[in-house]
Computed example of a mutant assay.
Amino acid sequence: MGDFVKGAVPEDWPQELKLHLYLHRKLDRFTADDPIFAQSRMRLDPRFRYARGILVDVFYDHFLARNWSRYSDQPLEFFSRDVYRGLLQCFELLPAALQQQLPRMIEYDWLTSYQYPDVVLRVLQRLQQRLKNRFPLTDAFSDLERWGDDLEADFFRFMPVAANEMNKWREQAAVD
């Protein structure tokens, strides 16, 4: 949802929904300055320019889905189901674009399917269209194939640092 909600968060939203959105934004800010994430961006072809951050985000989502059991005792399928259920419970609050995508997201179980390379390629195709073909993002799939081991090693170094940061933020948010 964080990719669809821009600007101020409506005050009348449920607190849990606002916290999830703020957490997403915190993670986005963290990755923008993180040296490990920056190293992954630099591995990708420079012709993708600032879209390299978007690509690394997609690739890290892929690695997370593939290695989910390292980070959670809850199976990815159950986590995904809970996320979809939560989004459906607040459907009327979601931005129109997300309301349109949510049925497909659930039907094709996007969160779980990120573990498969062919799905990553389809995600890149959709992103390329959303960016009005300014960047040939589907070409970056070859960077995933070429640099996949190095990118995944970056991901494994990034995750504990990011998790620690997000846990600190959650603890602080609980106090506020």
Rank of each mutant, 00 (worst) to 15 (best):
L111S: 10
D45N: 10
A38T: 10
L131P: 10
K26F: 08
F48H: 03
F37S: 09
P95Y: 00
Q129L: 12
D150P: 14
R134L: 03
P117C: 06
F156T: 13
R41V: 11
E92M: 10
V120R: 02
S40Q: 05
E77F: 03
E107K: 11
R52V: 07
T112E: 12
L94Q: 04
P46Y: 07
T138I: 10
R70Q: 13
F156G: 07
R126H: 04
V56W: 02
L93C: 14
R52T: 06
E145W: 00
W147T: 09
L44R: 10
Y60L: 09
A96D: 11
L131F: 03
F135S: 13
Q128A: 04
D57C: 04
A65K: 11
D33Y: 10
R85P: 11
T112F: 09
R47C: 12
I106N: 02
V58E: 01
R29W: 03
Q128F: 00
Q101S: 15
D149Q: 07
I106G: 04
K26T: 13
F37K: 11
E152M: 07
A65G: 13
Q129G: 12
R29A: 07
D28M: 01
R41S: 10
Q128R: 08
H62P: 14
G53S: 05
D118T: 15
F91I: 08
F78V: 15
L98C: 07
R134Q: 08
L55A: 14
R126P: 09
L151A: 00
L151H: 00
E145C: 06
D57S: 07
M105Y: 02
Q74S: 13
Y50G: 08
D82C: 06
G148M: 03
D61L: 09
R157V: 14
D118P: 15
R85Y: 08
P117T: 05
